[in-house]
Design a protein around this nucleic acid. Structure first.
Lengths: 249, 249
DNA sequence: AAGTGGTCTAGACCACCAT
DNA sequence: TGGTGGTCTAGACCACTTA
Protein backbone atom coordinates (compact mmCIF):
# COMPACT_ATOMS: atom_id res chain seq x y z
CA UNK A 1 0.00 0.00 0.00
CA UNK A 2 1.48 3.32 -0.99
CA UNK A 3 1.36 6.55 0.94
CA UNK A 4 -1.60 8.89 0.86
CA UNK A 5 -1.18 12.13 -1.04
CA UNK A 6 -3.03 14.85 0.87
CA UNK A 7 -6.56 15.13 -0.43
CA UNK A 8 -5.32 14.50 -3.92
CA UNK A 9 -4.99 10.77 -4.39
CA UNK A 10 -6.68 10.54 -7.77
CA UNK A 11 -4.94 8.27 -10.24
CA UNK A 12 -3.18 10.86 -12.38
CA UNK A 13 -0.11 8.85 -13.23
CA UNK A 14 2.85 7.89 -11.07
CA UNK A 15 3.27 9.61 -7.75
CA UNK A 16 6.76 10.86 -8.52
CA UNK A 17 5.47 12.55 -11.68
CA UNK A 18 2.90 14.41 -9.61
CA UNK A 19 5.60 15.43 -7.15
CA UNK A 20 7.67 16.63 -10.07
CA UNK A 21 4.76 18.70 -11.34
CA UNK A 22 4.32 20.26 -7.92
CA UNK A 23 7.99 21.16 -7.82
CA UNK A 24 7.91 22.70 -11.30
CA UNK A 25 4.83 24.69 -10.33
CA UNK A 26 6.65 25.95 -7.27
CA UNK A 27 9.60 26.95 -9.42
CA UNK A 28 7.39 28.72 -11.96
CA UNK A 29 5.68 30.53 -9.06
CA UNK A 30 9.03 31.64 -7.72
CA UNK A 31 8.75 29.79 -4.40
CA UNK A 32 12.51 29.27 -4.51
CA UNK A 33 14.98 31.69 -6.03
CA UNK A 34 17.60 30.82 -8.62
CA UNK A 35 20.78 29.73 -6.85
CA UNK A 36 18.69 29.19 -3.73
CA UNK A 37 18.07 25.83 -2.11
CA UNK A 38 14.80 23.96 -2.31
CA UNK A 39 13.72 22.14 0.86
CA UNK A 40 15.72 19.05 1.75
CA UNK A 41 14.58 15.70 0.46
CA UNK A 42 13.45 14.57 3.89
CA UNK A 43 11.46 17.77 4.44
CA UNK A 44 9.77 17.41 1.04
CA UNK A 45 8.98 13.78 1.84
CA UNK A 46 7.18 14.94 5.00
CA UNK A 47 5.36 17.80 3.29
CA UNK A 48 4.05 15.66 0.47
CA UNK A 49 3.54 12.53 2.57
CA UNK A 50 5.59 10.35 0.28
CA UNK A 51 8.75 8.36 0.80
CA UNK A 52 12.13 9.91 0.26
CA UNK A 53 12.77 7.60 -2.68
CA UNK A 54 9.80 9.06 -4.52
CA UNK A 55 11.09 12.59 -3.91
CA UNK A 56 14.49 11.56 -5.17
CA UNK A 57 13.05 10.15 -8.37
CA UNK A 58 11.19 13.41 -9.06
CA UNK A 59 14.32 15.45 -8.38
CA UNK A 60 16.40 13.03 -10.48
CA UNK A 61 14.41 14.03 -13.56
CA UNK A 62 14.61 17.74 -12.82
CA UNK A 63 18.36 17.40 -12.41
CA UNK A 64 18.59 15.53 -15.74
CA UNK A 65 16.69 18.42 -17.35
CA UNK A 66 19.13 20.86 -15.74
CA UNK A 67 16.37 22.64 -13.85
CA UNK A 68 17.82 21.69 -10.46
CA UNK A 69 21.38 21.04 -9.33
CA UNK A 70 22.36 18.69 -6.51
CA UNK A 71 25.32 19.29 -4.24
CA UNK A 72 26.18 16.52 -1.83
CA UNK A 73 26.23 17.69 1.75
CA UNK A 74 24.78 21.12 0.88
CA UNK A 75 21.38 20.70 -0.71
CA UNK A 76 19.52 20.93 -3.99
CA UNK A 77 19.48 24.28 -5.80
CA UNK A 78 17.58 26.04 -8.53
CA UNK A 79 19.77 26.24 -11.62
CA UNK A 80 20.74 29.85 -12.27
CA UNK A 81 22.19 31.48 -15.33
CA UNK A 82 25.82 32.50 -15.24
CA UNK A 83 28.81 32.30 -17.51
CA UNK A 84 29.39 28.61 -16.82
CA UNK A 85 25.89 27.50 -17.64
CA UNK A 86 25.81 29.81 -20.65
CA UNK A 87 28.97 28.31 -22.08
CA UNK A 88 28.00 24.79 -21.24
CA UNK A 89 24.43 24.67 -22.47
CA UNK A 90 23.58 27.71 -24.55
CA UNK A 91 26.67 28.71 -26.50
CA UNK A 92 28.07 26.34 -29.07
CA UNK A 93 30.55 28.44 -31.02
CA UNK A 94 34.14 27.49 -30.52
CA UNK A 95 37.42 28.40 -32.16
CA UNK A 96 39.99 26.09 -33.66
CA UNK A 97 41.51 25.49 -30.22
CA UNK A 98 38.26 23.67 -29.27
CA UNK A 99 38.13 25.63 -26.01
CA UNK A 100 35.01 27.58 -25.14
CA UNK A 101 35.51 31.23 -24.37
CA UNK A 102 32.97 33.68 -23.07
CA UNK A 103 32.14 36.22 -25.80
CA UNK A 104 32.09 39.99 -25.43
CA UNK A 105 28.79 41.55 -26.54
CA UNK A 106 28.43 45.05 -27.97
CA UNK A 107 25.04 46.64 -28.52
CA UNK A 108 24.25 47.71 -32.09
CA UNK A 109 20.64 48.83 -31.72
CA UNK A 110 17.65 48.73 -29.37
CA UNK A 111 14.24 49.40 -30.91
CA UNK A 112 10.55 48.90 -30.24
CA UNK A 113 8.94 47.46 -33.35
CA UNK A 114 5.95 45.41 -34.47
CA UNK A 115 6.11 41.65 -34.88
CA UNK A 116 6.22 40.39 -38.43
CA UNK A 117 4.77 37.01 -39.34
CA UNK A 118 7.94 35.06 -38.46
CA UNK A 119 8.57 36.70 -35.11
CA UNK A 120 4.91 36.41 -34.15
CA UNK A 121 4.85 32.73 -34.98
CA UNK A 122 8.03 31.94 -33.07
CA UNK A 123 7.01 33.86 -29.94
CA UNK A 124 3.40 32.70 -29.95
CA UNK A 125 2.14 36.23 -30.61
CA UNK A 126 -0.01 37.69 -33.37
CA UNK A 127 1.20 39.97 -36.16
CA UNK A 128 1.77 43.58 -35.23
CA UNK A 129 2.08 42.84 -31.53
CA UNK A 130 4.65 45.08 -29.90
CA UNK A 131 8.09 43.55 -29.57
CA UNK A 132 11.53 44.77 -28.59
CA UNK A 133 14.26 44.23 -31.16
CA UNK A 134 17.86 44.20 -29.96
CA UNK A 135 20.95 43.80 -32.12
CA UNK A 136 24.26 42.68 -30.69
CA UNK A 137 27.70 41.91 -32.01
CA UNK A 138 29.59 39.12 -30.30
CA UNK A 139 33.36 39.20 -30.14
CA UNK A 140 35.56 36.21 -29.51
CA UNK A 141 39.31 36.44 -29.10
CA UNK A 142 39.39 39.96 -30.47
CA UNK A 143 37.25 39.30 -33.54
CA UNK A 144 33.61 40.06 -34.34
CA UNK A 145 32.21 36.65 -35.18
CA UNK A 146 28.46 36.85 -34.71
CA UNK A 147 25.57 39.29 -35.14
CA UNK A 148 22.50 38.55 -33.02
CA UNK A 149 19.01 39.93 -33.48
CA UNK A 150 16.86 39.32 -30.42
CA UNK A 151 13.09 39.67 -30.21
CA UNK A 152 11.21 39.93 -26.93
CA UNK A 153 7.50 40.40 -26.30
CA UNK A 154 6.90 43.93 -24.99
CA UNK A 155 4.15 42.49 -22.83
CA UNK A 156 6.60 40.28 -20.91
CA UNK A 157 9.44 42.81 -20.80
CA UNK A 158 7.34 45.94 -20.34
CA UNK A 159 9.86 48.19 -18.60
CA UNK A 160 12.97 47.04 -20.43
CA UNK A 161 15.04 49.97 -21.70
CA UNK A 162 18.31 50.31 -23.52
CA UNK A 163 19.95 51.43 -20.28
CA UNK A 164 18.71 48.46 -18.30
CA UNK A 165 19.83 46.17 -21.09
CA UNK A 166 23.38 47.47 -21.37
CA UNK A 167 23.91 47.54 -17.61
CA UNK A 168 22.90 43.91 -17.27
CA UNK A 169 24.86 41.23 -15.46
CA UNK A 170 27.19 39.17 -17.58
CA UNK A 171 24.65 37.05 -19.47
CA UNK A 172 21.36 38.07 -21.05
CA UNK A 173 19.53 35.09 -19.65
CA UNK A 174 20.63 36.24 -16.21
CA UNK A 175 18.84 39.53 -16.87
CA UNK A 176 15.64 37.72 -17.80
CA UNK A 177 15.97 35.66 -14.66
CA UNK A 178 16.78 38.23 -12.01
CA UNK A 179 14.71 41.13 -13.32
CA UNK A 180 11.73 39.38 -14.90
CA UNK A 181 11.67 36.06 -13.07
CA UNK A 182 11.91 34.24 -16.39
CA UNK A 183 14.24 31.28 -16.20
CA UNK A 184 15.30 29.93 -19.59
CA UNK A 185 15.45 26.17 -19.22
CA UNK A 186 15.41 24.93 -22.81
CA UNK A 187 16.01 26.08 -26.37
CA UNK A 188 15.33 24.80 -29.85
CA UNK A 189 17.53 25.80 -32.73
CA UNK A 190 17.27 25.70 -36.52
CA UNK A 191 20.49 26.07 -38.47
CA UNK A 192 21.11 26.88 -42.10
CA UNK A 193 23.76 28.38 -44.31
CA UNK A 194 23.09 31.82 -45.79
CA UNK A 195 24.86 34.59 -47.65
CA UNK A 196 26.03 37.59 -45.65
CA UNK A 197 23.99 40.74 -46.18
CA UNK A 198 25.79 44.06 -46.62
CA UNK A 199 25.21 45.27 -43.05
CA UNK A 200 26.43 42.14 -41.32
CA UNK A 201 29.28 41.70 -43.77
CA UNK A 202 30.56 45.12 -42.74
CA UNK A 203 30.35 44.26 -39.04
CA UNK A 204 31.93 40.83 -39.42
CA UNK A 205 34.55 42.13 -41.85
CA UNK A 206 33.78 39.59 -44.53
CA UNK A 207 32.74 40.11 -48.15
CA UNK A 208 29.06 40.61 -48.86
CA UNK A 209 27.60 37.27 -49.94
CA UNK A 210 30.16 35.25 -47.99
CA UNK A 211 28.65 32.16 -46.34
CA UNK A 212 27.45 32.63 -42.77
CA UNK A 213 25.82 30.18 -40.39
CA UNK A 214 22.32 31.27 -39.40
CA UNK A 215 20.94 30.04 -36.08
CA UNK A 216 17.28 30.61 -35.26
CA UNK A 217 16.75 30.02 -31.56
CA UNK A 218 13.63 29.97 -29.44
CA UNK A 219 14.21 30.04 -25.67
CA UNK A 220 11.58 28.55 -23.38
CA UNK A 221 10.85 28.86 -19.71
CA UNK A 222 8.83 26.43 -17.56
CA UNK A 223 5.84 24.80 -19.28
CA UNK A 224 7.37 25.43 -22.70
CA UNK A 225 6.38 29.08 -22.87
CA UNK A 226 8.59 30.90 -25.43
CA UNK A 227 10.17 34.05 -24.09
CA UNK A 228 12.88 34.95 -26.58
CA UNK A 229 13.39 34.57 -30.31
CA UNK A 230 16.88 35.13 -31.62
CA UNK A 231 18.52 34.99 -35.01
CA UNK A 232 22.31 34.70 -34.98
CA UNK A 233 24.53 34.99 -38.02
CA UNK A 234 27.97 33.60 -37.49
CA UNK A 235 31.19 33.89 -39.44
CA UNK A 236 32.35 30.28 -39.36
CA UNK A 237 35.57 30.85 -41.28
CA UNK A 238 37.59 30.37 -38.07
CA UNK A 239 34.93 29.00 -35.72
CA UNK A 240 32.46 26.13 -35.66
CA UNK A 241 29.19 25.24 -34.01
CA UNK A 242 29.79 22.24 -31.75
CA UNK A 243 27.09 19.67 -31.18
CA UNK A 244 27.98 16.82 -28.85
CA UNK A 245 24.94 14.60 -28.81
CA UNK A 246 23.82 12.29 -26.05
CA UNK A 247 26.68 13.22 -23.74
CA UNK A 248 26.39 12.05 -20.16
CA UNK A 249 28.75 13.12 -17.38
CA UNK B 1 25.78 -3.89 4.91
CA UNK B 2 25.75 -4.14 1.16
CA UNK B 3 25.94 -7.25 -0.94
CA UNK B 4 29.20 -8.90 -1.83
CA UNK B 5 30.38 -8.59 -5.40
CA UNK B 6 31.94 -11.89 -6.39
CA UNK B 7 35.66 -11.76 -5.76
CA UNK B 8 35.73 -8.17 -6.86
CA UNK B 9 34.69 -6.02 -3.92
CA UNK B 10 37.42 -3.42 -4.17
CA UNK B 11 36.24 0.12 -3.63
CA UNK B 12 36.15 1.29 -7.25
CA UNK B 13 33.27 3.70 -6.97
CA UNK B 14 29.56 3.01 -6.57
CA UNK B 15 28.33 -0.51 -7.08
CA UNK B 16 25.82 0.46 -9.76
CA UNK B 17 28.61 2.10 -11.78
CA UNK B 18 30.56 -1.13 -11.69
CA UNK B 19 27.47 -3.04 -12.76
CA UNK B 20 27.04 -0.55 -15.60
CA UNK B 21 30.63 -1.10 -16.69
CA UNK B 22 30.09 -4.86 -16.70
CA UNK B 23 27.00 -4.44 -18.86
CA UNK B 24 28.80 -2.17 -21.33
CA UNK B 25 31.66 -4.63 -21.51
CA UNK B 26 29.18 -7.39 -22.27
CA UNK B 27 27.62 -5.26 -25.00
CA UNK B 28 31.00 -4.43 -26.52
CA UNK B 29 31.87 -8.13 -26.43
CA UNK B 30 28.63 -8.96 -28.22
CA UNK B 31 27.15 -11.07 -25.41
CA UNK B 32 23.71 -9.80 -26.45
CA UNK B 33 22.71 -9.00 -29.99
CA UNK B 34 21.15 -5.73 -31.13
CA UNK B 35 17.38 -5.97 -30.82
CA UNK B 36 17.90 -8.93 -28.50
CA UNK B 37 17.01 -8.96 -24.82
CA UNK B 38 19.53 -8.75 -22.04
CA UNK B 39 18.83 -10.93 -18.97
CA UNK B 40 15.95 -9.82 -16.79
CA UNK B 41 16.63 -7.49 -13.90
CA UNK B 42 16.04 -10.22 -11.33
CA UNK B 43 18.40 -12.60 -13.14
CA UNK B 44 21.11 -9.94 -13.34
CA UNK B 45 20.60 -9.22 -9.64
CA UNK B 46 21.27 -12.89 -8.88
CA UNK B 47 24.25 -13.17 -11.22
CA UNK B 48 25.97 -10.10 -9.84
CA UNK B 49 24.88 -10.68 -6.23
CA UNK B 50 23.37 -7.23 -6.06
CA UNK B 51 19.91 -5.98 -5.24
CA UNK B 52 17.47 -5.33 -8.04
CA UNK B 53 17.45 -1.61 -7.27
CA UNK B 54 21.15 -1.43 -8.04
CA UNK B 55 20.65 -3.22 -11.34
CA UNK B 56 17.84 -0.82 -12.19
CA UNK B 57 20.00 2.20 -11.53
CA UNK B 58 22.72 0.88 -13.83
CA UNK B 59 20.17 0.15 -16.57
CA UNK B 60 18.54 3.55 -15.99
CA UNK B 61 21.72 5.27 -17.13
CA UNK B 62 22.20 3.02 -20.14
CA UNK B 63 18.61 3.74 -21.16
CA UNK B 64 19.21 7.48 -20.76
CA UNK B 65 22.24 7.11 -23.05
CA UNK B 66 20.06 5.23 -25.55
CA UNK B 67 22.23 2.15 -25.38
CA UNK B 68 19.41 0.01 -23.98
CA UNK B 69 15.64 0.20 -24.43
CA UNK B 70 13.11 -0.92 -21.82
CA UNK B 71 9.76 -2.42 -22.70
CA UNK B 72 7.40 -3.04 -19.87
CA UNK B 73 6.25 -6.63 -19.66
CA UNK B 74 8.72 -7.78 -22.33
CA UNK B 75 12.24 -7.08 -21.21
CA UNK B 76 15.23 -4.80 -21.81
CA UNK B 77 16.76 -4.75 -25.27
CA UNK B 78 19.95 -3.67 -26.97
CA UNK B 79 19.23 -0.56 -29.03
CA UNK B 80 19.51 -1.37 -32.72
CA UNK B 81 19.80 0.87 -35.72
CA UNK B 82 16.79 1.22 -37.96
CA UNK B 83 14.92 4.00 -39.71
CA UNK B 84 13.24 5.19 -36.51
CA UNK B 85 16.41 5.53 -34.50
CA UNK B 86 18.20 7.06 -37.48
CA UNK B 87 15.57 9.75 -37.88
CA UNK B 88 15.23 10.35 -34.19
CA UNK B 89 18.87 10.57 -33.14
CA UNK B 90 21.16 10.79 -36.13
CA UNK B 91 19.40 12.77 -38.86
CA UNK B 92 18.56 16.39 -38.20
CA UNK B 93 17.61 17.74 -41.60
CA UNK B 94 13.98 18.61 -41.96
CA UNK B 95 11.91 20.43 -44.57
CA UNK B 96 9.63 23.37 -44.07
CA UNK B 97 6.81 21.05 -43.00
CA UNK B 98 8.89 20.26 -39.87
CA UNK B 99 8.25 16.55 -40.40
CA UNK B 100 11.16 14.17 -40.59
CA UNK B 101 11.33 12.00 -43.66
CA UNK B 102 13.70 9.17 -44.38
CA UNK B 103 16.10 10.18 -47.15
CA UNK B 104 16.96 8.17 -50.25
CA UNK B 105 20.70 7.61 -50.69
CA UNK B 106 22.44 7.18 -54.04
CA UNK B 107 26.05 6.12 -54.30
CA UNK B 108 28.38 8.49 -56.14
CA UNK B 109 31.72 6.79 -55.60
CA UNK B 110 33.46 4.08 -53.58
CA UNK B 111 37.25 4.26 -53.37
CA UNK B 112 40.16 3.02 -51.31
CA UNK B 113 42.43 5.92 -50.50
CA UNK B 114 45.02 7.08 -47.97
CA UNK B 115 44.11 9.15 -44.94
CA UNK B 116 45.05 12.80 -45.10
CA UNK B 117 45.86 14.72 -41.94
CA UNK B 118 42.23 15.63 -41.18
CA UNK B 119 40.80 12.15 -41.69
CA UNK B 120 43.61 10.57 -39.72
CA UNK B 121 43.08 12.91 -36.80
CA UNK B 122 39.31 12.40 -36.70
CA UNK B 123 39.51 8.61 -36.92
CA UNK B 124 42.45 8.26 -34.54
CA UNK B 125 44.70 6.93 -37.31
CA UNK B 126 48.01 8.12 -38.70
CA UNK B 127 48.58 9.78 -42.05
CA UNK B 128 48.59 7.51 -45.06
CA UNK B 129 46.74 4.75 -43.28
CA UNK B 130 44.36 2.97 -45.64
CA UNK B 131 40.79 4.22 -45.53
CA UNK B 132 37.64 3.68 -47.56
CA UNK B 133 36.07 6.81 -49.01
CA UNK B 134 32.40 6.68 -49.96
CA UNK B 135 30.38 9.47 -51.51
CA UNK B 136 26.60 9.55 -51.35
CA UNK B 137 23.85 11.88 -52.44
CA UNK B 138 20.83 12.12 -50.18
CA UNK B 139 17.42 12.87 -51.65
CA UNK B 140 14.49 14.22 -49.69
CA UNK B 141 11.06 14.67 -51.20
CA UNK B 142 12.37 14.31 -54.71
CA UNK B 143 15.29 16.71 -54.37
CA UNK B 144 19.02 16.16 -53.90
CA UNK B 145 19.75 18.05 -50.69
CA UNK B 146 22.96 16.64 -49.27
CA UNK B 147 26.29 15.23 -50.42
CA UNK B 148 28.04 12.98 -47.90
CA UNK B 149 31.67 11.90 -47.90
CA UNK B 150 32.27 9.01 -45.53
CA UNK B 151 35.63 7.74 -44.32
CA UNK B 152 36.11 4.33 -42.73
CA UNK B 153 39.27 2.69 -41.49
CA UNK B 154 40.19 -0.16 -43.85
CA UNK B 155 41.44 -2.06 -40.84
CA UNK B 156 38.00 -2.13 -39.23
CA UNK B 157 36.04 -2.65 -42.45
CA UNK B 158 38.51 -4.95 -44.18
CA UNK B 159 36.15 -6.84 -46.47
CA UNK B 160 33.81 -3.99 -47.34
CA UNK B 161 33.17 -3.70 -51.05
CA UNK B 162 31.04 -1.48 -53.20
CA UNK B 163 28.62 -4.36 -53.72
CA UNK B 164 28.23 -5.03 -50.01
CA UNK B 165 27.73 -1.34 -49.41
CA UNK B 166 24.99 -0.80 -51.97
CA UNK B 167 23.11 -3.94 -50.98
CA UNK B 168 23.00 -2.86 -47.35
CA UNK B 169 19.90 -2.75 -45.17
CA UNK B 170 18.14 0.58 -45.00
CA UNK B 171 20.59 2.52 -42.86
CA UNK B 172 24.36 2.63 -43.03
CA UNK B 173 24.72 2.30 -39.27
CA UNK B 174 22.70 -0.90 -39.52
CA UNK B 175 25.35 -2.24 -41.88
CA UNK B 176 28.11 -1.41 -39.42
CA UNK B 177 26.11 -3.12 -36.73
CA UNK B 178 25.02 -6.35 -38.36
CA UNK B 179 28.07 -7.02 -40.51
CA UNK B 180 30.88 -5.61 -38.38
CA UNK B 181 29.41 -5.72 -34.89
CA UNK B 182 30.05 -2.00 -34.52
CA UNK B 183 27.16 -0.27 -32.81
CA UNK B 184 27.20 3.52 -33.20
CA UNK B 185 25.99 4.92 -29.90
CA UNK B 186 27.09 8.55 -30.04
CA UNK B 187 28.20 11.23 -32.46
CA UNK B 188 29.82 14.63 -32.26
CA UNK B 189 29.21 17.20 -34.93
CA UNK B 190 30.88 20.43 -36.02
CA UNK B 191 28.86 22.74 -38.23
CA UNK B 192 29.89 25.65 -40.40
CA UNK B 193 28.75 27.53 -43.44
CA UNK B 194 30.73 27.10 -46.63
CA UNK B 195 30.58 27.90 -50.33
CA UNK B 196 29.50 25.12 -52.68
CA UNK B 197 32.28 23.68 -54.79
CA UNK B 198 31.68 23.02 -58.47
CA UNK B 199 31.12 19.27 -58.09
CA UNK B 200 28.61 19.47 -55.27
CA UNK B 201 26.90 22.49 -56.84
CA UNK B 202 26.19 20.38 -59.90
CA UNK B 203 24.75 17.53 -57.84
CA UNK B 204 22.65 19.79 -55.62
CA UNK B 205 21.55 21.94 -58.55
CA UNK B 206 22.66 25.18 -56.98
CA UNK B 207 25.12 27.80 -58.26
CA UNK B 208 28.78 27.27 -57.52
CA UNK B 209 29.67 29.33 -54.46
CA UNK B 210 26.14 29.20 -53.04
CA UNK B 211 26.10 28.79 -49.25
CA UNK B 212 25.90 25.21 -47.99
CA UNK B 213 25.84 23.86 -44.46
CA UNK B 214 28.84 21.67 -43.72
CA UNK B 215 28.51 19.02 -41.01
CA UNK B 216 31.59 17.15 -39.84
CA UNK B 217 30.50 14.13 -37.87
CA UNK B 218 32.45 11.55 -35.93
CA UNK B 219 30.51 8.43 -34.95
CA UNK B 220 31.62 6.48 -31.88
CA UNK B 221 30.93 3.00 -30.60
CA UNK B 222 31.32 1.76 -27.03
CA UNK B 223 34.23 3.23 -25.07
CA UNK B 224 34.35 6.26 -27.35
CA UNK B 225 36.18 4.54 -30.16
CA UNK B 226 35.65 6.44 -33.44
CA UNK B 227 34.48 4.26 -36.31
CA UNK B 228 33.26 6.68 -38.96
CA UNK B 229 34.14 10.19 -40.08
CA UNK B 230 31.67 11.90 -42.35
CA UNK B 231 31.47 15.30 -44.00
CA UNK B 232 28.02 16.34 -45.18
CA UNK B 233 27.27 19.36 -47.30
CA UNK B 234 23.65 20.37 -47.24
CA UNK B 235 21.60 22.70 -49.38
CA UNK B 236 19.65 24.53 -46.68
CA UNK B 237 17.65 26.71 -49.04
CA UNK B 238 14.51 24.67 -48.33
CA UNK B 239 15.65 22.61 -45.33
CA UNK B 240 17.12 23.24 -41.89
CA UNK B 241 19.20 21.40 -39.31
CA UNK B 242 17.05 20.96 -36.21
CA UNK B 243 18.61 20.94 -32.77
CA UNK B 244 16.22 20.43 -29.88
CA UNK B 245 18.36 20.63 -26.79
CA UNK B 246 17.75 19.04 -23.42
CA UNK B 247 14.55 17.33 -24.55
CA UNK B 248 13.14 14.71 -22.20
CA UNK B 249 10.21 12.45 -23.02
C1' DA C 1 27.79 17.11 15.66
C1' DA C 2 24.02 17.83 12.77
C1' DG C 3 22.17 18.00 8.32
C1' DT C 4 22.44 17.13 3.47
C1' DG C 5 22.55 14.26 -0.62
C1' DG C 6 24.37 9.36 -2.37
C1' DT C 7 24.19 4.39 -2.22
C1' DC C 8 22.30 -0.05 -1.27
C1' DT C 9 19.09 -3.28 0.30
C1' DA C 10 14.54 -5.87 0.79
C1' DG C 11 10.03 -6.46 -0.04
C1' DA C 12 5.35 -5.30 -1.67
C1' DC C 13 2.26 -4.39 -5.23
C1' DC C 14 0.97 -2.77 -9.97
C1' DA C 15 0.78 -2.70 -15.20
C1' DC C 16 1.79 -4.99 -19.10
C1' DC C 17 2.91 -8.88 -22.24
C1' DA C 18 3.15 -13.47 -23.74
C1' DT C 19 1.31 -18.10 -23.64
C1' DT D 1 -0.71 -17.71 -15.53
C1' DG D 2 3.97 -16.53 -15.01
C1' DG D 3 7.46 -13.35 -16.14
C1' DT D 4 8.82 -8.70 -17.16
C1' DG D 5 9.57 -3.93 -16.09
C1' DG D 6 7.42 0.20 -13.14
C1' DT D 7 6.32 2.24 -8.75
C1' DC D 8 6.54 2.92 -3.87
C1' DT D 9 7.99 2.20 0.66
C1' DA D 10 11.21 1.81 4.79
C1' DG D 11 15.39 1.68 6.76
C1' DA D 12 20.47 1.43 7.02
C1' DC D 13 24.80 3.32 6.21
C1' DC D 14 28.16 6.35 3.68
C1' DA D 15 30.27 10.87 2.00
C1' DC D 16 30.33 15.45 2.24
C1' DT D 17 29.54 20.24 4.03
C1' DT D 18 28.86 23.50 7.55
C1' DA D 19 29.04 25.38 11.88
Amino acid sequence: MHGTFEQNDLALGPLYKRVKTLLVEGLARGDWQPNGAIPSESRLAEQYNVSIGTIRKAIDELVAEKILVRQQGRGTFVAAHGEDRFLYHFFHIVGSDRVKHFPVAKLLSFKKVRADALVAERLGLTRNDRVIQIQNVLWLEGKAIEVDTIYLSSALFADLTREIFVSRPSTIYQLYQVRYGLNVIRTTERLRAAAARADEAAVLEIPEGAPVLEIERIAFTYSDAPIEFRVSRVNTAQHVYLNDLDRMP
